[in-house]
Design a protein around this nucleic acid. Structure first.
Lengths: 153, 153
DNA sequence: AAAGATTGATCAGTCAATCTTG
DNA sequence: CAAGATTGACTGATCAATCTTT
């Protein structure tokens, strides 16, 4: 049994919490702005397409939502936009008549290729360029402790 | 002159970036859900009211947006909702006819008092309860390096 | 013209209800 | 009835345009 304090917060805990919220909000805004400035779609499109890449047999929407921590209706509407733009393909699922299978299209694959150099540069500029390699490893280790059940892919 | 690598990302950098996005998204969702479950308004209301508390002379909207990293129109609409709910008070600004001054009302002060015990418990449960005090300090130190210009209050 | 602030129109996220199949 | 997925109605965020004052 792990003993968990329920409501006693140290100053350092509150400070760390505030910085985590503030910093992640700011970083996300900067990176989204950078993508937009390059005429590219938002990060969530990249994430979804990246999950689908390498899944030769595609993924069911519910699998995608689980990996991306999205709600079902959010995923449904995201897939609407991605399909509308031609980056994914929705096919009926043979094993389960309720569901579908989502595949990455070649246009989707091409978008990933086009986005990555920009995204990569933005991460370097706003994030890793300001940290040492040890900082990155320490940060990942600490954040991993905060993941209760879901995978940290 | 600091030399900054522009686009070369180590594996640990990418891993840390991914975890930062994932973890902050998940934590924020958990805490927002906890507030909602307790019948309380969203975190951004708390943040705004907290900034106003202790500002005896109130704040101009543009000051509040700077501190909260919000856009001008977002702040305008947030203040609409807070004023509508009676938690803040918008008064004309005497020194500058374009502007206004926003004050916390006593109902706003009461809301802060009501939200804090719930918020505090959620932070402990999802965040600091899973970290050591050293983790918190390390985390804050690393995140501080990522803050380029804006204050980290 | 620039700064502070707001607004109409539009787009994305959310809630509750719905539909279909297992 | 559960699970997978969608949809209509509504709330919140965003963009561009606007208004007022400096």
């Amino acid at each position: 049994m792990t003993r968990v304090k329920t409501s006693d917060l140290s100053d350092s805990a509150v400070a760390a919490w505030a910085r985590l919220l503030r910093t992640s909000q700011s970083l996300l805004a900067d990176v989204e702005a950078g993508l937009k400035a390059a005429g590219l779609p938002p990060l969530v499109w990249y994430d979804a397409l990246l999950e689908l890449r390498g899944e030769k047999d595609g993924l069911r929407p519910y699998q995608l939502q689980e990996r991306m921590l999205l709600t079902q209706y959010n995923m449904s509407r995201l897939l609407d936009r991605l399909a509308e733009a031609g980056y994914v393909d929705r096919r009926p699922c043979l094993e389960d008549g309720r569901g579908q299978i989502v595949h990455l299209t070649s246009a989707g694959r091409a978008l990933l290729k086009r986005m990555w150099p920009v995204y990569r540069t933005l991460i370097a500029e706003h994030f890793s360029g300001r940290l040492s390699d040890k900082d990155c490893r320490d940060l990942a280790r600490i954040l991993d402790k905060l993941a209760p059940s879901y995978a940290t892919g």
